[in-house]
Structure formats: C-alpha cells, structure tokens
Amino acid sequence: MSDSIASGSQTAAIKVHGLSKTFGNQFALRKIDFELPPGEFLTIFGPNGAGKTTLIRILSTLTHASSGEVEMGGIVPSKEPDKIRRQIGVIGHQTYLYENLTAEENLKFYGRLYGVTDLDQKIATIIASVGLRLRRRDCVRTFSRGMQQRLAIARALLHEPTILLLDEPYTGLDQHAAEMLSGWLRELRSSQRTTLMVTHDLERGIDLADRIAILKKGRIVFYEKRENVDRSNFKQTYYKLVGDEQNTA
C-alpha cells in the first residue's frame, strides 16, 4: 500500500509523513503518510470523528501536529507559515464571515489582508459568479446558510490560491450551487491547482477526484488512484472499511 501512496518523483504539492495529532490522551491522527502531486485532486472520505478536519487544520497552519512532517510545494508550513498561507485557500466547517458586514465588505476585508491587487474588480467578478450580485450590499447576518457558504467559497478563492483545502464545502448548498461548485473545482483542477477535499458525498467526491482516500480513526485505510477504483462498487468498499461500526473514533 505504501507504494501507491509515495508516488510522484517531482516535488509533491502536499507531502505528509508520520503525522500524528493527540488531544490529551486521545489520538485524532495516527502516523499518517501520503503524497499528492501538483495539480491533482484528492478526496478524503471518512466517518465523523475520523480526523479529517484535524488533518485540514494542520495543513492550513491552524494547529500544530504532535509529531510528523508536512511539506507543501517544498515549503514546511511550521517554518514559513506566512509563505504557505498566501498559497492556500481554505473552506472550513465555519464560514469565517462577519455577520455585521455586507458580502462585499467581507470580501474587501479578506482581500486586503491578503494584499490582493485589483481588489474591487476581482470582488465584482467573484460575487457575480457565486450568484450574490443582488445581495452584495446586504449584511451577511441576513443570508441563508447556503448563501453564506457561497460567500465562504468566494472568500477562499479570492486570493487565487494554488492549493485548496476544502472541509465539506457542499454543506448547505442547494443542487444548483453544488453543481456550480463542482464546475469550479473542475475548472480549478485543470488550471493546475492542487486540491484536498473532505466530503461525505461519495458521488461528487469520486466525480472530481484523481485520488481517493478513506480515513478511519485517524488512519488512512484506503488510498488509491481514481482509475483503480471501481466506482460502482465503491459504496460497498467504503462501508466494508468503515461502515460496520456504529460508534466512531
């Protein structure tokens, strides 16, 4: 199995080696290894509490690993955090939006923090493409969950990151918006962006993926290239690997 994990000979976009994270005396991640070549799309599935969010938080420099190494595009995040922060776009469980600011102001705020040039232009474009143009002057407080999620996506993409870390980005999106998101992600992938996505949506996850991983109780129990995965069978594979247990990690 380790053969399939350590693949590319060129510098991987994301390289994780022996990564562990403990909370008190509870393991969230146990010695995780994987590599993701640049421009590829990795989908991670796993039951609640498997450690998916923890992995994304470590990769996005929000928290430190207990042990192990991470390298992204040749940069070690714990050593040069600001360099990596410029390159990653993150969608998390929360939207990171300020409720008392309008959609436009939220984007303006984050855009300025990242030092985005041509900000007004870019905001106008991205706000139109997430379908919030008519609501752009309204406070986020008045938005529905799905609208907030759309704005959160705009926020994550505004500074044109090269690596995307997405934690359940489909949360709260309607069919239409979900299709739209899939469309963007496909587009972004073709423009050589590396993506790591966590989702519970097997269909969409497989559709987009170049590689598929399953995380269970902090371990990677499955890691395959998309072409080696039998799609019609995947659901059974998944349940066989993780689904037989009621209680999670």
Partner: peptide, 10 residues
Amino acid sequence: TSELKKQIAY
C-alpha cells in the same frame, strides 16, 4: 497514567 491510557487506546 494518562500516557498508559493513550497507549491502550493506540
């Protein structure tokens, strides 16, 4: 003690 617990959990 808590280390021991952790080892058992592992």
